[in-house]
Design a protein around this nucleic acid. Structure first.
Lengths: 218, 218
DNA sequence: CAGCAAATTGTACGGTCGTTCGTCTAGAAT
DNA sequence: ATTCTAGACGAACGACCGTACAATTTGCTG
């Protein structure tokens, strides 16, 4: 019955995927990684277990069995995208820069770079997911909303620190500033991807500078 | 064979849909209207001819026949949404306000009101469509990109007029201003829908005022 | 070594998708 | 009155979807 199972199990991957006890975890990671990439193009709802099985070389029934349901796969995909976002955007900004204005700018620049480098082929994962699931109830929507709220809270915390340290123009409302930066970045992602236009990112950089540092700086 | 054709054709709608020569046009309009509403929740790709047939009371095969293919239906849906956008946002701003700064503000306020009133259940049709199709090639992508470019060009034209009339703070780059307003509005739509949060719209209004009129106005 | 549990697989089921086809109806054209 | 044409229909298609299930392989454990 088995057509080519005896030849080596997993097959062509870098790891032979020996049938160790933790093999499941590795397969899950492989599927979820590909899933996050696909979701920014096809959408979280447009994800297909069958297509995921093809591109990862894992049987369709296995992909399903690894997660139990499509919804769980979607939730796992969101978690993977969240970790990727933290690694690509948040951690670099926290590593080399002081808190306050400098870190706030580093977060924004990290985001724009993350969009520019197309870490995900369809741009920011969470902007795609937010637009897709914004109007629908359910656990998947809630997970996306939670991750997005986390991101905006992070921007707000740094803006508040910057304000307290007197690094922002007098009278700056840090909550309002964080809101504006958040929607500016999200909107820029949309325009940048839709028109495949890097000028949008450049314009966003100018807007951020101007908004954070004020009209001076002659 | 015919179960209930003789009773009146269309059936329960407000119009009996008499089999006049323009009946097809009316059916198309009915489908396309429902389609635009559905697309902001299910997505343009998630649209289903079968579901559209159910909610409009038209046979599935008829819905398909009216357009010829799903892609043509999607393009017709985009055109219908564009007309709705013009009627809800653009025309009011052009009717009662002078060109320049006042009209620019009226366009922004019209957009925010259009989002707030949930003219489409999933928020701005074109933000949803842009995020969904941003990373994909094809005629549907191009139609969305064209409509969005039209909208941004409109903002830019009014910003330029306002600048020429000296209604903006000295040294304002009208192209940059139009970009910032466009992405701010799009980002606000996403946040507003995702968290069902009307405070986002309020914050957007404050941001627009501040960005257009400058820091004065004590 | 024997036995258990996790990992993986093939097969199959019911459902929905977009699309095709043949047919019927009824206004428009001749 | 006859022909033409567009609208609307039900039925059926192949494809793909998510899911269910039994079977098999394989590493770990007693």
């Amino acid at each position: 019955m088995s057509t080519q199972v005896g030849s080596g199990g997993g097959g062509k991957g870098d790891q032979p995927a020996k049938r160790t006890r933790a093999a499941g975890e590795r397969s899950r990671a492989r599927v979820v990684e590909e899933s996050a990439r696909l979701a920014t193009v096809e959408g979280l709802e447009g994800l297909s277990i069958g297509r995921l099985a093809e591109t990862t070389g894992i049987a369709k029934s296995s992909v399903h069995a690894l997660f139990g349901s499509k919804e769980v796969l979607q939730l796992a995909t969101i978690e993977a995208a969240r970790e990727s976002f933290i690694a690509e955007v948040v951690t670099p900004a926290f590593g080399a820069t002081r808190s306050g204005r400098e870190r706030l700018l580093a977060l924004c620049e990290g985001y724009l770079s993350y969009v520019e480098r197309r870490v995900f082929p369809g741009g920011c994962f969470f902007v795609s997911a937010s637009a897709e699931l914004g109007g629908r109830p359910g656990r998947v929507h809630d997970a996306v909303a939670r991750a997005q709220q986390e991101w905006r809270d992070l921007l707000e915390a740094e803006a508040k620190t910057a304000a307290e340290q007197g690094e922002l123009p007098a009278g700056t409302d840090s909550t309002q500033l964080a809101f504006e930066l958040g929607v500016l970045l999200a909107g820029t992602n949309i325009v940048s991807v839709l028109h495949d236009d890097s000028a949008a990112v450049t314009r966003a950089r100018a807007a951020i500078r101007h908004r954070v540092d004020g009209p001076e700086r002659a």
